[in-house]
Design a protein around this nucleic acid. Structure first.
Length: 611
RNA sequence: GGCCCAGUGGCGAAGUUGGUUAUCGCGCCGCCCUGUCACGGCGGAGAUCGACGGUUCGAGUCCGUUCUGGGUCGCCA
C-alpha cells in the first residue's frame, strides 16, 4: 500500500551520510536494494544514485513492515545516524555507519523485477532494454550516465571560458540528399512536403559564422537513417563547434586544450563514480602526456600506409610493410598479378606466432576475405629457422629470403601478406592487425592514445555514382598547393580536413570551410552539381556567402563515442539512457509504431506497402 | 541485403553418441534466526527447452523454416 510523503523533506542522499552526522536525525528516500531479516534484527540496504546506506532495526516495538520489504520498493526513512555496533563494511562508502529508523513510509511497493538490480549481471540485452528504467538503476549503468552528464558540463565550462556561445539550431530542416539517409517528417500544412531531421547542424553553424557569432558550440542531437553498429545509433549526440577567422592549427589547438582539460578533470569524477580505477589512472597518464607534448599529427597517407586505416589504433605496433618492390618480379602470380593491376603487396609480421596452427591461420584468412581480399599468403618461420609457407614453391630461395628480410622476419615469426588494390589490402591488413593485436595481448586497455589525422583526400571516387564525391562534405577547403590540380588529377587533391582519433576510434572530425565563391563554385562543379541543383539544395548558403563570409573552420565530436571510450564501455548503448536496438526500434516504447488512419489522412499520406 | 554467434523455470547457466522423473546457482514464497552486508538453516512453488514443421519407437539434442537479440560487411557526404 503506497503512502504519500506527508510533508517529509529529504535531508540528503544515501551516499552523502557520513560519520560527522552521527547522532543527528536524517530523512532519506530511495529504493530497497536488499533486506536481510535475521529474526530479531533487520538490515535494509537503502539505495539511491549516490550509493547505499544500511538501515538497522533491532528494537522489539519497531515497525513490523521492516522485516518484509519488497526489493526495489521506494521508501522514505526518518532516523538517527549511528556508528555501527557490529562489523564495518569496507566495501561501502557508508560502511562505518548506519541509520536507526523512527519512521518508515512505503512510498511505492515493487513487484519482483524481471532481473536482479545489481552490477555484473549477465542478463540478455533485449530484456534489459525492455525494462531500461530498471536497468538504469544498476549502479554501473547509472554511473556511466552520470559520468556523461559531468563530462558535458566540463565541455560547456571549457568552451564557455574560451568564448564559445551555445546556440541552438532547429531540428526540422530541409532535406539534403547528399550523404546519409535523412529521417523525414511530413508537413501537415504543406501536403506532400517533408522536413528532414538534421544529420548534423553543419550548414546552420556556417550561417552562424556569417552572422558574426564568431565562436559557436552546441550539444546537438543528430539523426541518420542508416544501419546500426556497436558505435552507431540512428540518433546520436555531437559536440559541435565552429570558429571564425581561424585556420586548421587554431582548431587543433583549442581542441587539444579542450581534451587536455577533460583528461585532467575526468579522473576524480571517474573515481567518485566508481568507474574502473585502472581506466582513471590511464586517463590521468594521458592527460599528463597531452599537456606536455600535445597530440601528435599524422597524415592520412601515412596512417593508411602504416596501419591500413584512417583511424589507426596506436596502442601497439605491428605496422604494415610494403613489399611490392621485393616481390614485383617473383614467380608467384597472385603477387605479380596484383601489382600489374595497379595494386600492391603488403604484409604484417606477427612476432612470435610462427607456430600458429593452420586452423587459426584459416580463420585469419576468413577475416581478410570479409574485407574483400581473395586470400591470405603466409610464411611461418619456426623456432628452428625452418619455413612453412603457402607460396614458397613459387619463390626461389633468394626471393624468399629477401621477402623475410624485408618483413624483419625472425625465427618464430608469422608473416601474413595481402595482395590486391590499395583499398582491399589496407582494409584487410588493418582488420588482421587489430584481431592479432587483441589476441596476442598487445593492447593496453587502459591506455589512451590520441592522434590527429590530417591531409585527408578532398574527393573520393564512387563506383556506384560514377563520379567523385566529397570525402568530408562539399564545403571543405582544399589544400591550397594542390588546388591547381583539381582538373588534371582531382583524386590527388588534399583537403584541409582533420579527424581526432582515439585508440582506433574516430572520436571527431572537422575541416576548414570554403569561404571563397570561386573555389566553392568549382568544387560543386567537380562534384557534378548543376548550378540549378546546387542552388536548390544549398542556395541559402551560397547566397549568404555573397554578403561577407568570414574564413571559418570547425569540428564535431561524437559525444556518445567519447563517453564510451573514457567509461570503458563496449557499446555506445551503455552510455545512452534510452538506446535503440539493431533494427533501430525502441524495445521499451515499441517505436516506431503504426499510427491512426486519421493522423495519416491529416498528413495526406497513404501506406502503399507493408512489411 | 550478405555472413557469423546466441535463445533451456523470473534471471544466469549444465544437459555425453537422440532414451523415459530436464540438473545447478540466483531470485521468489513459507517457517526459523539479534550484527548481517555474496547473510545463514529448513521446506516449497515455478519449464509446453524461442516458435512452427519434419526425421524417429522416442527430440532440449538431428534436419528445415521462422522469430528475437548481438557482432560484422555493405551502408554511415
Amino acid at each position: 500500500m503506497a503512502e504519500s510523503m506527508q510533508g517529509l523533506k529529504r535531508t540528503m542522499r544515501c551516499g552523502e551520510v557520513s560519520e560527522e552526522m552521527i547522532g543527528k536525525s536524517v530523512t532519506l528516500m530511495g529504493w530497497v536494494a536488499k533486506c536481510r531479516n535475521k529474526g530479531g534484527i533487520v538490515f535494509v540496504d537503502l539505495r539511491d544514485r549516490t550509493g547505499i546506506i544500511q538501515i538497522v532495526t533491532e528494537s522489539e516495538g519497531a515497525d513490523e513492515r521492516w522485516g518484509s520489504l519488497k526489493s526495489e520498493s521506494a521508501i522514505a526513512v526518518v532516523g538517527t545516524v549511528q556508528k555501527r555496533g557490529g562489523a564495518v563494511n569496507p566495501n561501502l562508502k557508508t560502511g562505518t555507519i548506519e541509520v536507526v529508523p523512527e519512521t518508515l513510509r512505503i512510498l511505492s511497493t515493487s513487484e519482483t523485477p524481471p532481473f536482479l538490480i545489481q552490477d555484473g549481471i549477465d542478463t540478455r540485452e533485449d530484456l534489459r532494454l525492455k525494462y531500461r528504467y530498471l536497468d538504469l538503476r544498476r549502479p554501473e549503468l547509472m554511473h556511466r550516465i552520470m559520468f556523461r552528464s559531468r563530462v558535458v558540463q566540463m565541455i560547456r565550462d571549457f568552451l564557455s571560458s574560451e568564448g564559445f556561445l551555445d546556440i541552438e539550431t532547429p531540428s526540422l530542416i530541409g532535406s539534403t540528399p547528399e550523404g546519409a539517409r535523412d529521417y523525414l517528417v511530413p508537413s501537415r500544412v504543406h501536403p506532400g512536403c517533408f522536413y528532414a531531421l538534421p544529420q548534423s547542424p553543419q550548414l546552420l553553424k556556417q550561417l552562424l559564422m556569417c552572422s558574426g557569432f564568431d565562436r559557436y558550440y552546441q550539444i546537438a542531437r543528430c539523426f541518420r537513417d542508416e544501419d546500426l553498429r556497436a558505435d552507431r545509433q540512428p540518433e546520436f549526440t555531437q559536440v559541435d563547434m565552429e570558429l571564425s577567422f581561424v585556420d586548421q592549427d587554431d582548431v587543433i589547438d583549442v581542441n587539444t586544450r579542450l581534451l587536455a582539460y577533460l583528461l585532467e578533470k575526468m579522473p576524480p569524477v571517474m573515481r567518485e563514480l566508481e568507474i574502473d580505477e585502472a581506466l582513471a589512472a590511464g586517463v590521468e597518464q594521458a592527460g599528463r602526456e597531452v599537456r606536455e607534448n600535445g597530440i601528435p599529427r599524422m597524415t592520412w597517407k601515412e596512417a593508411m600506409d602504416r596501419y591500413g586505416s584512417d583511424k589507426p589504433d596506436l596502442r601497439f605496433g605491428m605496422e604494415i610493410v610494403d613489399v611490392s618492390e621485393v616481390v614485383k618480379s617473383c614467380g608467384f602470380g597472385v603477387f605479380t598479378g596484383a601489382i600489374e593491376n595497379g595494386g600492391m603487396v603488403r604484409g604484417l609480421n606477427a612476432k612470435g606466432q610462427g607456430e600458429m596452427p593452420r586452423k587459426r591461420i584459416d580463420k585469419l584468412t576468413e577475416t581478410a576475405k570479409t574485407y574483400g581480399a581473395k586470400g591470405l599468403a603466409y610464411i611461418a618461420i619456426h623456432g628452428d629457422g625452418s619455413v612453412k609457407s603457402s607460396f614458397s614453391k613459387f619463390l626461389t630461395e633468394e626471393e624468399l629470403r629477401a621477402l623475410i628480410d624485408a618483413m624483419g622476419g625472425e625465427n618464430g615469426d608469422l608473416l601474413l601478406f595481402a595482395a590486391d588494390s590499395f583499398k582491399v589490402v589496407s582494409a584487410s591488413l588493418c582488420a588482421l592487425r587489430l584481431e592479432l593485436g587483441e589476441e596476442m595481448g598487445l593492447i593496453d586497455h587502459n591506455a589512451f592514445r590520441f592522434v590527429w589525422i590530417v591531409d585527408f583526400p578532398l574527393l573520393e571516387w564512387s563506383d556506384e555514382e560514377n563520379r567523385f564525391m566529397a570525402m568530408h562534405h562539399p564545403f571543405t577547403m582544399p589544400n591550397e598547393e594542390d588546388w591547381k590540380n583539381i582538373d588534371t588529377d582531382p583524386g590527388s587533391v588534399r583537403a584541409q580536413a582533420y579527424d581526432i582519433v582515439l585508440n582506433g576510434c574516430e572520436m571527431g572530425g572537422g575541416s576548414v570551410r570554403i569561404h571563397m565563391d570561386d573555389v566553392q563554385e568549382k568544387m560543386l562543379e567537380v562534384l557534378g552539381f548543376t548550378p540549378e541543383r546546387a542552388s536548390e539544395q544549398f542556395g541559402f548558403l551560397l547566397t549568404a556567402f555573397k554578403y561577407g563570409v568570414p574564413p571559418h573552420a570547425g569540428l564535431a565530436y561524437g559525444l556518445d563515442r567519447m563517453i564510451m571510450l573514457f567509461a570503458g564501455a563496449d557499446s555506445i548503448r551503455d552510455v545512452i539512457a534510452f538506446p535503440k536496438v539493431k533494427d533501430a526500434s525502441d524495445l521499451m516504447m515499441s517505436a516506431p509504431s503504426k499510427v491512426d488512419e486519421k493522423q495519416l489522412e491529416e498528413l495526406c499520406l497513404a501506406i502503399t506497402a507493408e512489411e
